[in-house]
Simulated assay, not measured.
Amino acid sequence: MIDKTTLRLSRNAFGRLVFTGADGETYDGIIPARAFPISAPDEGIALIDRYGHELAWIDQLNDLPGEVRELIEADLAKREFMPEVTRIRDVSNYATPSTWYVDTDRGKTSFILKGEEYIRRLMPPALLITDSQGIHFLVRDRFALDHHSRKILDRFL
């Protein structure tokens, strides 16, 4: 864990995060990584160097000073693209691969589901659907979806 008052983070000329350790050594190309991106997105964030070594651990993102928190949040938002499915409008067929037409928190879209094994059950009642391009779609609560969406989803589970 790092002292949040001395955490020094900035951006270099290329837009990459730069971490300056307590010893004054700087590390370029830092990647923030969430320990629990779905269940606790603001808790447990590691700052990792380009070689995969953990340089710092942040217990609570909200405890950081505003400027540092904004740098980390911006970097995480760039790297983590996980639309949340709010409605399943239709599927091309009930055999895979199939094209799904969905509404998400980011708008309407479609994706190809290669197989039922690409629907992962998370902590109930959440699901994670990975499309053919490797994009993850989150269903936070499958029981909160409308009847039509649940009916489609049940055929694949």
Rank of each mutant, 00 (worst) to 15 (best):
I2W: 06
T5G: 05
L9M: 10
L9R: 03
L9Y: 06
S10P: 00
N12G: 08
A13I: 14
A13E: 15
R16N: 12
V18N: 00
F19Y: 15
T20L: 07
G21W: 09
A22C: 01
A22L: 07
T26H: 09
T26F: 07
Y27I: 01
G29D: 07
P32S: 08
A35Y: 12
A35I: 14
F36N: 13
F36A: 13
F36K: 13
I38H: 11
S39T: 15
P41R: 10
D42P: 05
G44I: 02
I45W: 05
A46D: 11
A46F: 11
D49H: 03
G52I: 02
G52P: 00
H53N: 14
E54D: 10
L55Q: 14
L55F: 07
A56S: 13
W57K: 13
W57P: 00
D59Q: 15
L61V: 03
D63Q: 15
L64Q: 04
V68W: 01
E70G: 00
E70S: 10
L71W: 03
E73F: 05
D75W: 06
L76A: 01
E80L: 15
E80A: 09
F81G: 03
P83V: 07
P83E: 07
P83C: 08
E84V: 15
E84W: 06
V85L: 11
I88N: 04
R89E: 10
R89A: 11
D90K: 14
A95D: 09
A95S: 14
A95W: 09
T96I: 01
T99P: 01
T99V: 14
D103N: 10
D103G: 03
D103M: 08
T104Y: 03
R106N: 05
R106H: 06
K108P: 00
T109D: 10
T109R: 07
S110M: 15
S110W: 13
I112R: 07
I112H: 01
L113K: 02
G115D: 15
I119D: 02
R120D: 12
R121P: 05
R121W: 12
A126L: 06
A126R: 12
I129G: 00
S132F: 02
I135P: 02
F137H: 13
D141C: 12
D141P: 07
D146H: 09
S149K: 05
I152Q: 02
D154A: 12
F156I: 05
L157T: 08
